[in-house]
């Protein structure tokens, strides 16, 4: 397992949480290690444009594309999820994202932001990430999110599984789309439920 090392906030917890559920984890941006890992965890903390710029320094978009082209698993977390969309608008700054999915990440319409704390969500029944933990709460800390899902998938491709949560309106809390998965909340900070989600993800690899 590789946790992508590109100077993003607290990656220590992601490494420790993955180790806790049995993974062998390397914190690196080495191209070969990233390409060959069974799973790539993409963390992300801070402003959308800052995360995009930091990702560019390790050619993160290219690394993710190459893995996905080979059907190899990638899990984006928090802003590491947000940058997978087409664009992000934050504090008036409009930034192009990695564009794995169409759509815009922008500010939630809630009275109190950031959305900070433990919230519920509504995963689809087929979800593998949320198997056994669909009723648990997970830890969110963010002000922006994707609030519409725009990707339409044609038969025979399987439809992406989109999990919604609510804070001043619905937003996307998680996506499972073939090898590419993402969570807006922090599984590495969501106690036992979060560890179970990471364990579920490992099981899909």
């Amino acid at each position: 397992m590789v946790v992508l090392d590109y100077g993003s906030g607290n990656v220590h917890s992601a490494v420790k949480a993955l180790e806790k559920v049995g993974a062998t984890v390397e914190l690196t941006a080495d191209r070969r290690a990233v390409a060959e890992a069974d799973g790539l965890f993409v963390p992300g903390v801070g402003a959308f444009d800052a995360v995009m710029r930091a990702l560019e320094t390790v050619r993160g978009g290219d690394l993710i594309d190459k893995r996905l082209a080979g059907g190899r698993a990638v899990l984006g977390v928090c802003v590491g999820m947000q940058v997978l969309f087409g664009r992000g608008v934050e504090r008036g700054v409009d930034t192009e994202g990695l564009g794995e999915w169409p759509g815009t990440v922008d500010e939630l319409r809630a009275d109190v932001l950031p959305h900070m704390g433990w919230n519920t969500l509504t995963p689809p029944n087929e979800s593998r990430l949320f198997a056994g933990i669909a009723d648990e709460r997970f830890y969110f800390v963010h002000s922006n999110a994707a609030q519409t899902w725009e990707l339409e998938v044609q038969h025979p491709l399987p439809a992406p599984l989109v999990t919604w949560a609510d804070h001043g309106g619905g937003f996307i809390a998680a996506v499972e789309n073939g090898p590419l998965a993402a969570t807006q909340f922090h599984p590495e900070k969501s106690g036992d439920a979060g560890l179970q989600l990471l364990s579920n993800w490992l099981r899909t690899l």
């Binding site: 906030g9 903390v45 801070g46 402003a47 800052a50 802003v79 950031p114 900070m116 800390v141 963010h142 002000s143």
Partner: peptide, 8 residues
């Protein structure tokens, strides 16, 4: 806030 985000 600029370097790490307000949520920090």
């Amino acid at each position: 806030a600029d370097r790490f985000g307000a949520q920090v």
